[in-house]
Nucleic acid binder design. Sequence first.
DNA 1: CCTCCACAGGAAGCGCAGGAGT
DNA 2: ACTCCTGCGCTTCCTGTGGAGG
Length: 398
Amino acid sequence: MSKKLDELFSKIMHSKIFENRDMLRPDYIPDELPHREKQILTLAKILAPILQGQRPSNVFIYGLTGTGKTAVAKYVLENIKSRKEVSGKMATAYINCRYDDTDYRVLATLNETIGIRIPFTGLATAEVYKRFVNGLDNKKISMIVVLDEIDALVKKCGDEVLYKLTRINTELKNSRVCVIGITNDLRFTDFLSARVLSSLGEEEIVFPPYTAPELEDILIRRASKAFKPNVLEDGVIKLCAALAAKEHGDARRALELLRIAGEIAEREGKDKVTIENVKQAYKEIERDREIEAINSLPLHSKIILAAIYKLQKMEKKEITTGEIYDTYKALCEKTKIEPLTQRRVGDLINELDTLGIINAKIVSRGRYGRTKIIKLSVSDKSIREGLLSDENILRVLT
DNA sequence: CCTCCACAGGAAGCGCAGGAGT
DNA sequence: ACTCCTGCGCTTCCTGTGGAGG
């Protein structure tokens, strides 16, 4: 056994494929951001007044996932911070609102970036805000606040903090704050009240999706550092770029694809990454996503899915809502779980449909009523793996 | 043309958890 | 500690409906 482990570890230590696989990870920020020159310049122009101690306009950054919004923001901030004109006179805060998704946590994090400790609970939100204003004013600095995935915060808590943050400059005598909001929800402004919109949206930058050739260029640059020389078969990068471009030009997706393909090749002990590996990686990512989607379903949705799976195994060609409900109820009985009503199950079936796990179509069969015919749209294997991690379901399926 | 099946899906309301105000 | 409020998952009750068979 220990010999096998030895082999495994030395295989990874002496990878024939990777030089530095971290270069392909989503959180890696490269030294240069190709094909985003325009956005970098625009953002830099907007923020430049800070070098003269003036307050820059607030900025709104839009763009789908994997279009480089976060990377560009961080890149420009780093550059500004490193200039000697502002040393000691400015601070930056980067907040991911997906993790800090309440007013309190956002304000607490802001306090911490200027060196004020805040207990994780116990203070009124207004008090935390007051401490931030006072603390910041005493420091006599300019501050740039980046709120990434800002839509998550607003959808959960409303735009009260944003309003306060954009108005904070009226309360400050010696310091000033500039807010950069980043969102991948293009209809995000619908959630904002007009008062916030006018002050936060002083400037807007849109990040279009990368095109296939752009993705290819990015991948080539990254791959040259991430992989050993000459391990990529011809066309590997082109295929990764093409597959990711099809899914709204997501660079993160493209890099993931390349990394997984490399890992597959490595696992198989090859010294080349082939086109076939990319296709396998694509399937693997797809499958992992399916399994994850199924796995995170609430209990009753899982039972419904198990019912559909069972019916499909019985080689029924047309599965209807009524049949599913009967099977579902039987499964519930076996597990001693209180079944939901058919009305509710109907809604859950619709949810499974929107998630893309099943396919439901309304049909009218005349005399024989109006119903939905339902088909699974993920592979049997994904269903089994996704469901079997749940022991409740395991018991009824076997 | 009308009927009537087997549901779809809207409306209202209920109980509960969790947060805000006091 | 207590009320009040709100959102969410769910139920109950309901009206609506495409088209095969009469």
